[in-house]
Every structure is written in structure tokens, then in C-alpha cells.
Nucleic acid binder design. Structure first.
Lengths: 228, 228
DNA sequence: CTGTTTTATTTCGCATACAAAATAGGCGTC
DNA sequence: GACGCCTATTTTGTATGCGAAATAAAACAG
């Protein structure tokens, strides 16, 4: 069982993660022009993995090819987070409906396992626990999509969920929010097990709208703080 | 004004289109193992553009990386087309709602222009006209997404719409279907212009459900023929 | 000084070379 | 005859070189 921990990631993955992180943290500013050679120098990698990483980031919408040889960090609109949550809501409600029809016993067991792990970390004692919670939450949503048995959906959600990290910065759960999330997860699993697609979809919808609302509040807060 | 016609596509694009086409037409069978060298030899290109094309196709779900050095043509489920239409329906209904709020006069003019071009080709006299219709239809849907002003959505729909070519094989419009499609398009534009998101979304929903139904019928037909 | 053309430099796309990792095949053992 | 181990081959990941295209800079005209 190879842990998800990073023993030695290959250069392409390393480049992808690094560039992405630098975009999300603002080290690479919006609209900034990128050149393969500079990134290659900065990251200490050759151009090949850089190229591959850029290609992926372009497809995911983090980077824009302008014309010919000009490549820029994409511009992120104000309501980016809101949009992502809405798109995720649409796709995940569909996923969970399929999952309710198609999930196997193993899928359901996996979901329960993830949720149990999250419960064990609640409330989170330290930063590490928080990190684990975030990852487990993502794993939960991925597992739902996987249970939907739709490669197409999986492909789309891969980018959509990856993208949702944009939002992650803002999402430090309060204990109340966290409990609600766990209850949502548990109810979703129950609905899947009961083979009740609409029930599952409704809870999922609530789950993501709650998340969107939480994020919106945070952003509002951080904005009003910044304005002073 | 450089026409969308292919004067001289670069090698990566060429590789992408070729591999994709070979997958969709079945020349590369589902589950077949792919090696960069073989594709490189077959297409007469070096490995670099092949690699890039493969990376893209993996992200879009046409190709699967299994473990280590094994890469296979993905397996497409029976109801692939149905799933694609459903996913498109969800995303495009959302798009068109945003478009109804955010579209500029230019966006709307562009939509009308595309629809007029389609009308001019109706009924299609020859295969070229049919081809133009297919492309214009795709352009219409892309224009809607563009008018929604959501880079994230654009990124996701790029792959989703590209993917919809899977379905294209089956979609030879009858004149009745084509007229209905054009009317749907026209009504969608009107709804956008009237700034009526829900109206627009409803028509779009009908539009795509009609399309899904048409495709389902064709598949049923071609299947029953094949069974004999 | 502004706008345009010409030249120089940068940047990318593609080909190729090499090393590390994975697969496949052959061998011996149980 | 089936299974595991070791070796040979294949395949990928990464680095690098070169030509073409695009961008930036300089020269020039108005």
C-alpha cells in the first residue's frame, strides 16, 4: 500500500504543483507573462516537464495562451469561488444520483471509511489534522464520483476538484460547520445505500450550497478587513 | 482574417486529432495498449508531440494510464452518449443563465450571425453543408459558454464539447430535427436578449434533451440493425 | 516627437539522445 | 505443471539542440 505521501514525485508533477501553487498564492501574478525558460530556471528543471505542466494548466484554465508565443497567468474573476461551487454542485448532484444507482458494497464501505477517518479528527487538534480533514473531504467527493462509474464525469471532475483548491485557502472549518459537513456526508452515504438518488442529490446540493455560503462569508470578511 | 480552415496545423494538434480520430473510429480498439514509439512511427512524428497529445487525451478521459509504463485506450460505456448529453445539459443550462445576465450586444450579434449561417445551409444540399452545420452548431454552443464569462466553465466545456464528437457520428439531422434545432437556437438568443435566464435555460434544456433523444434513437436503430 | 519599417533577440515547437524504470521472457525450483 | 526469481528488452521521463516563428528593439521617415 503506497501512501499518498510524496516519496519522489517526478519532475512534471513537481513542475505542475509548483507552478499551480505559485499562481494560487499570487507569487505569479494574474496576467503575468510566463516563459518556459524562466520557469525552467526558477524550478531547476528542464523545459520538457515545464512544457507538460503548462499544457495541463492551460487545459485547466489556470494559464492562457494569448497569441503565438505569449502565455499568461489567467485572470480570476471576483466570483470565481461561487462559480466553482455552482459547477461542482451541478456535476456532483448528477454524480451522486448515478452513485445511488450504481455504487457497489465496496464503494459504500470506502465512503464510510473516509467519513470515519474524518470523524476521528474532529475537532481538529492541530494543523496536521486540519490538513488531513481537507484531504479526506476531497477523497470523499472523489469517491462519490468514482462510484458514479462515469469516466467522462471523472475526467471533468478531476479538473473541477483540483480547481476547488483555489477556494481551499478560505476554508478553515468552524466546529459547527465541520459537524454539519460530516452529517451531510453520513446522510449522503445512507441515501446511496438506500438507493435513493433524489435524496442523495438533495443532501449533496445542500452540502455544496452550505460550503459556498461559508466561503462567501469568509471572502466578505477578509475583504472588509482588507478595506480598512 | 485567417479562416478556420487548416492551412498547416502543427504536429501536436495533428497528433491529437489523429489519435483521437483513430480511437473514435475504432482503429485503435478499446483497451488497446499504446506506446509512444509506435504512434510516433505510425504518424510519422517524433515522440514529443505524441506525448503532448497523449497527455491531453488522458486528461479528457480518452486514454488511461494504468500503472507505470502502461497506457491504454479507455473503455467507453454503453451509455456514454447519454452521459455526455446530460453533463452538457447541466453545464450549458448554467452557462446560458449566466449568458442571459452577462452577454453583451456583440455576443448576441455573434449568436444571431451563427444562427443565420445555419439557416442558410438548411436544408443541407451536400455533405459540405452538413459539415458546416455541425461546425456552426458547435460554434453556437461555444459562443454561449463564452458569453457566460466564466473561464472555469470555458475550460471545462472545452473538453466536454470536444468529447461530444463521440456522438457526432450518429448525428445526421433530419430536416424536421434541424428546423427544431434552429428554432431552439433562435429562442435561446431571444431569451438571452430579453435577459430571461430561466427561459433561456429551459429552452437549452429542451434543446439538449431533444438531441439526446435523437442520438438514443439512432443508436437503438444502428444496434438493432447490427443485431440482425 | 510619433509612427512605421527593419533588424536583432527571444521563445517556442519539434527532433533526438540518454538514463531510469517497468514489462516481458527465460530459468530454476517446488 | 505452476510459481517465483533473475535477466534482457522495451518504454517512458527528462535533457538538450536546432530551426522557425514571434516579440522586442533599433533605425528611419514623416
Amino acid at each position: 500500500m503506497q501512501s499518498s505521501g510524496s516519496s519522489r514525485p517526478n519532475a512534471t508533477e513537481q513542475a505542475y504543483q509548483a507552478i499551480r501553487k505559485n499562481i494560487l498564492t499570487g507569487k505569479l501574478e494574474e496576467g503575468e507573462r510566463l516563459t518556459e525558460t524562466r520557469l525552467s530556471d526558477d524550478l531547476g528543471l528542464s523545459r520538457t516537464p515545464i512544457r507538460e505542466a503548462i499544457g495541463r494548466l492551460v487545459l485547466e484554465g489556470f494559464i492562457e495562451r494569448q497569441s503565438g508565443y505569449t502565455t499568461r497567468v489567467a485572470h480570476f474573476p471576483e466570483d470565481e469561488a461561487e462559480q466553482i461551487y455552482e459547477i461542482r454542485r451541478l456535476m456532483e448532484c448528477y454524480s451522486v444520483q448515478r452513485a445511488a444507482r450504481l455504487a457497489t458494497e465496496e464503494d459504500i464501505a470506502e465512503l464510510r471509511r473516509i467519513n470515519a477517518a474524518m470523524k476521528a479528527d474532529t475537532p481538529p487538534r492541530d494543523e496536521a489534522a486540519n490538513q488531513r480533514l481537507t484531504e479526506a473531504n476531497e477523497a470523499f467527493h472523489r469517491a462519490i464520483v468514482a462510484a458514479a462509474r462515469s469516466p467522462r464525469l471523472t475526467a471533468l471532475m478531476t479538473t473541477a476538484l483540483d480547481v476547488s483548491m483555489v477556494v481551499r485557502t478560505y476554508s478553515m472549518y468552524s466546529e459547527k460547520d465541520l459537524m454539519r459537513s460530516l452529517n451531510h456526508h453520513a446522510e449522503i452515504i445512507d441515501a446511496i445505500e438506500a438507493r435513493a438518488p433524489k435524496w442523495a442529490a438533495s443532501v449533496m446540493s445542500a452540502h455544496l450550497l452550505a460550503g459556498a455560503s461559508r466561503v462567501a462569508a469568509r471572502m466578505q470578511h477578509s475583504k472588509s478587513v482588507a478595506d480598512q
